[in-house]
Amino acid sequence: MPSADTIFSGGTLRSMRRLGKRYPSAVVAAIVLFSMVTAGAASLPYSVRWFNVQDLGAGIRHAPSITPAVPEEPYLPDRSDLEATELGALGGAAYRLTSLLGHDDLGRSLLYRLLPGFLVSLGIGLGAAVMAIIIGVLWGAVAGLIGGRLDSLMMRVVDVLYGLPYILMVILLKIALTRPLTSLLGDRTRYAEVLILFIAIGGVSWLTMARVVRGQVLALRNRAFVEASRLCGAGTWHILRRHIFPNLAGPVIVYGLLVIPQAILQESFLSFLGIGVPQPIPSLGRLAADGVEAVNAFVGFWWLLVFPCATLVVTLLALNIIGDALRDAMDPKSRAASLLA
């Protein structure tokens, strides 16, 4: 694997422009992702108001329409009148969009579940990626730098963990973590569970990262410029800071980026099994899984399946395209000349 300076040389902006020229699909993906994040963030005040508003009358499984299906002042048992009026004033325009993507089986607006659901999924993905990067980089760097017995022991551990069934481990980790964390966070259990979710997913996603980092460290350790620096009398910390870490950045970013879609996919599987994010917090996986169930019961509720799945697929596709382009850019052999082309 080449060092990061092959793609990040000549100023970040310039190298990004160069990358964009070579991978136009990645640019499109980044734009799509960015606008989805913007839409999700911008609509957050409204979706916080609407995502769990149930209308058990006209709203149940109401098909998509441009006119709202539910009355403007829905039943809000846990809000004071003052708060309700404030929110109502804020969301006049937002209210008109509530039925745009239809309603689910509890009469909740799909649009205002989808928008924050996207952010929740992305958050879980990012959290898992951060977890994977922290554990993976530490593990891989220590193994690669210290080497010898410890290295082979640590890599043997990684091998054994690879030998464990992945999804089983996520479930067990999640169950194991639930009690201590809920006791720590008290009544905010819901949010604790989201936290647990990405710790569990991140906790099993670091293996590849550890291998990549170790390989990179081993390769760098024997490179001429590190040898030269050592000959000049540079200390270990200096070598780490000046030579090893900057050159790790590229692969770590790329593999970290690729953890995000995997984590989102994992979460959607867990949601499908009913142990993903807790109700009523929406996530793309939960919404898609609910959609699958609704459609299995009666094919007519297509919007409950189509919109969440489309959002999920577009998100994952965008993330994968960006990660793939970056990985390709770091790989010199992807541009080597060939007689057979």
């Binding site: 599987f269 996986g285 399946l305 799945c309 999920l312 697929v313 994952l316 994968n320 395209i321």
Partner: peptide, 13 residues
């Protein structure tokens, strides 16, 4: 990339 981005329950359904 599409194969990678589709959850199995979506393709299955």
């Amino acid at each position: 990339l599409t194969c990678m981005s589709l959850p199995t329950f979506v393709t299955g359904s």
